[in-house]
Write a protein that binds this DNA or RNA. Structure first.
Lengths: 116, 116
DNA sequence: CAATTTGTTATAGTTGAGCTAGAAGATATA
DNA sequence: TATATCTTCTAGCTCAACTATAACAAATTG
């Protein structure tokens, strides 16, 4: 799996990590049973603190996406491909882009919609 | 227009305001030419600082959504109904909900998708 | 079993965003 | 001219995010 992190974005790094795992799982790029890199290693390669990575792993476990244990690492669990979500996601993203909305604005709209 | 602000959400208040104006404009609930409440008044009724409201108004002006001037207030400008965006938004929101994603997770996915 | 890997927990310090507050000033409007 | 409303500036507070160390516990490996 490819990791792309931008510390300049106003979105917290740990949330970027979470979102990337979510997306990879939904798309099927991360299969159930597959193991993610050790926190130490991922932190080093992304040049962030290990706790930032662990924070993301921990939350993904709470969401039921990962099984995380010491000595073993983080393994994808539970969910399967959700092509419908990916499709709807792409549809909305392109519509939002066409309407001239920024990524932040589009994301905020989703929060609004889901909160109501 | 109805304003619903939740200071407890981790999303900044000024961003909630921005998102609500975006949504209202896209849905056609706010017509071009329509005037928003004075910052003082809106701040008082939502029980937030006036600067928080002005922050939102200013950014919406930079995005080309509002025309804001002293002595006059904030007026909707430019954009029109974008039913397609609203439709895509609803589609994605319900798909995300079905997949068990939180509002935060879904919003982050959109950021990911639009950033790439 | 011993060594290694890897996450867990705790403590602590830094930085910046977001929010609040008060005040003086400038521009529309009535 | 008087009023409404945004603009700009200064200032302080709080909390989330990130970083850094370090001791510790569980799973795996040889």
């Amino acid at each position: 799996m490819l990791w792309r992190i931008d510390p300049e974005r106003d979105e917290p790094v740990y949330q970027q990590l979470i979102a990337q795992v979510h997306r990879a799982v939904l798309r099927g790029d991360l299969a159930v049973g597959e193991r993610l890199p050790a926190a130490t290693e991922l932190a080093r390669s992304l040049d962030v603190n290990i706790h930032t990575v662990l924070h993301a792993y921990r939350q993904l476990r709470e969401e039921g996406v990962l099984d995380v244990r010491r000595g073993r690492g983080a393994v994808v669990v539970g969910r399967r491909d959700r092509g419908d979500v990916v499709k709807a996601l792409r549809g909305f993203a392109s519509a939002a882009r066409d309407a001239g909305l920024s990524a932040d604005a589009a994301a905020a709209l989703v929060r609004e919609e889901m909160a109501s």
